[in-house]
Measured scan of single mutants.
Amino acid sequence: MLDDRARMEAAKKEKVEQILAEFQLQEEDLKKVMRRMQKEMDRGLRLETHEEASVKMLPTYVRSTPEGSEVGDFLSLDLGGTNFRVMLVKVGEGEEGQWSVKTKHQMYSIPEDAMTGTAEMLFDYISECISDFLDKHQMKHKKLPLGFTFSFPVRHEDIDKGILLNWTKGFKASGAEGNNVVGLLRDAIKRRGDFEMDVVAMVNDTVATMISCYYEDHQCEVGMIVGTGCNACYMEEMQNVELVEGDEGRMCVNTEWGAFGDSGELDEFLLEYDRLVDESSANPGQQLYEKLIGGKYMGELVRLVLLRLVDENLLFHGEASEQLRTRGAFETRFVSQVESDTGDRKQIYNILSTLGLRPSTTDCDIVRRACESVSTRAAHMCSAGLAGVINRMRESRSEDVMRITVGVDGSVYKLHPSFKERFHASVRRLTPSCEITFIESEEGSGRGAALVSAVACKKACMLGQ
């Protein structure tokens, strides 16, 4: 009897593995994704193909990295998701002549009506938060230079001027797309009239992360975010950046690689679950690469896999709870928690219980395998993109072996128990001629924006502006 049951459990697990095998990517698959990513990057950089390229390769006008001589107080704003952060950054000489960066910050959550109302409502709310922060720190009387981390696709015309191309991540505030974001912020500050600010720089969160990590390690020339969304930036040779005049030196390019796949480059790798996630998203047909990796989508992918296993009578005796059938019910943090389970399955059992399920031991094991399959594919897909960037940098610099540091931020990278190990191992397999160091950014977005502002202020002083 026991043997029969054991055989049935083994057969069930084997069927589960057959279904989950769809998520496995072979090294040849990853090399294919990497080569296609490089081709799209090239198209994004070139003037004649930029418009139709899915990977936009947006110039950021960040050319210099901090040298350690900029000092002063800077205000930093960070808008990239449902939370908005205001930070005071003091850049100065530390002990023994070292450079020191001290920060104080406060988080504000953005109400739904500000995210989806008008641009005026959104930026009025942001300036209200700045006003509140300055009151708390008794700094209303000071006109501070301000660095703005704005983590949406922007076409820069200068370091302090950028046109919002399109909202992502659930934002829909009308009247912002096609307009200068810094102008919208300046107008809102003017409307309030109770404080003055000098907006000197606007950067993407990947750029802010790279600059913040450069402060720790001067070989950091790539910034990457794996959180709600997924994106990367890197220092490109100016001669390859056709959208900006000049051939000397390097400029940081914001790849906006989340949109890779929007022209069909990933079609052969998309599964039924991916198509369902895409169809029910706020932007169907867009940001397809990001939807395979980002935390906004990972939990939902797992939920759809679990429903398939229920329908195949391989999980929960073929019956799903009402909660499990509800879109968004299986949160991405559950994926991390399930994979963090120590082996007694308590954590998995508790999560499934909150979803109205009474799982068996085998159910718990199957749910864990589903989570591992989805998150491992995410790590491997992400590795193909980064390997594409790094191999490109090595080739354009004609280096036999390139040493490089990548600064990384984002909740999936930082909080998932195995993502970074799987990701690092896969990147290294795909970049055999590179020695890569990964560092995690601390308060990256805010500190990085302030350091970019410090560079901009120093330049302005040198130019006598």
Rank of each mutant, 00 (worst) to 15 (best):
L2Y: 04
D4L: 02
R5N: 03
A6M: 10
R7V: 12
R7D: 08
M8A: 15
A10N: 15
K13H: 14
K13R: 08
I19Y: 14
A21R: 13
Q26Y: 11
D29V: 03
R36Y: 03
M37T: 01
D42I: 09
D42G: 09
R43G: 01
E51D: 04
E52C: 15
E52R: 10
V55L: 13
L58W: 11
L58R: 06
L58I: 12
P59T: 04
T60Y: 00
T65N: 10
E67L: 10
E67S: 09
G68S: 11
S69D: 15
V71A: 04
G72A: 01
G72Y: 00
S76G: 05
G80D: 15
L88T: 03
V91I: 04
E93Y: 09
E93D: 08
E93L: 14
Q98L: 04
W99G: 06
H105M: 13
Y108D: 06
E112I: 08
E112W: 13
D113M: 11
D113P: 15
D113F: 08
T116M: 10
G117R: 11
A119T: 09
M121I: 13
F123K: 08
D124N: 11
D124S: 05
I126L: 08
S127G: 12
S127E: 05
I130L: 14
I130D: 00
I130H: 02
L134K: 02
L134I: 03
D135K: 06
D135F: 06
M139G: 07
H141A: 05
K142T: 08
L144G: 02
L144H: 09
L146V: 14
G147T: 11
G147N: 08
G147F: 01
F150M: 13
F150L: 14
S151A: 10
S151F: 05
H156E: 14
E157F: 15
E157V: 10
I159W: 13
I163L: 12
L165E: 09
K169W: 08
G170D: 14
G170C: 11
G170W: 10
S174Y: 06
G175I: 10
E177L: 09
E177F: 11
N180L: 13
V181N: 14
L184K: 05
D187R: 04
A188M: 01
I189M: 06
I189S: 03
F195D: 01
F195R: 03
E196C: 02
V199F: 08
A201R: 01
V203T: 06
N204Q: 13
N204K: 13
T209L: 06
M210K: 00
I211D: 00
Y215S: 00
H218W: 08
Q219F: 15
C220I: 07
V222C: 01
T228P: 11
T228F: 04
T228G: 07
G229L: 15
C230W: 05
N231I: 02
E237H: 02
E237Y: 04
M238H: 13
E242P: 05
L243F: 01
D247H: 01
G249Y: 03
N254H: 10
T255P: 14
T255D: 05
E256G: 09
G258A: 15
A259F: 09
G264D: 13
L271P: 07
L271I: 02
D274V: 04
L276V: 11
L276T: 15
V277E: 06
D278C: 12
S280F: 13
S280Q: 15
N283L: 15
Q286N: 15
E290K: 15
L292A: 12
Y297V: 15
R303Y: 03
L306A: 01
L306Y: 00
V310T: 11
D311M: 12
E312L: 08
F316G: 06
F316N: 14
E319T: 07
S321M: 08
L324M: 04
L324Q: 01
L324I: 07
R327W: 10
G328Q: 15
F330Q: 00
E331D: 12
T332A: 12
Q337Y: 03
V338D: 00
V338I: 02
E339W: 01
E339H: 04
S340C: 04
D341V: 01
T342Y: 01
G343F: 07
G343Y: 01
D344V: 02
D344R: 02
K346T: 11
I351S: 05
T354D: 07
L355K: 05
G356K: 09
G356R: 03
R358F: 06
P359S: 08
T362N: 09
D363I: 00
I366A: 04
I366N: 03
V367M: 02
R368K: 03
R369Y: 02
A370I: 04
S373L: 07
R377M: 00
R377Q: 00
A379W: 06
H380I: 11
M381W: 13
M381A: 12
C382K: 02
C382N: 07
A384F: 10
G388L: 10
N391F: 05
M393L: 13
R394N: 08
R394I: 10
S398L: 10
D400L: 04
M402D: 12
T405M: 02
T405C: 03
G407H: 03
V408F: 05
K414R: 13
L415I: 09
H416V: 10
P417L: 10
S418Q: 14
F419I: 04
E421I: 14
A425L: 13
S426A: 10
V427E: 00
V427K: 00
R429Q: 15
E435R: 11
I436G: 02
F438W: 08
G444S: 09
R447D: 15
R447Q: 13
G448A: 14
A449W: 04
V452T: 12
V452M: 12
V452A: 10
V455F: 09
A456Q: 05
A456I: 10
A456H: 03
K458I: 12
K459I: 05
K459F: 13
A460L: 10
M462C: 07
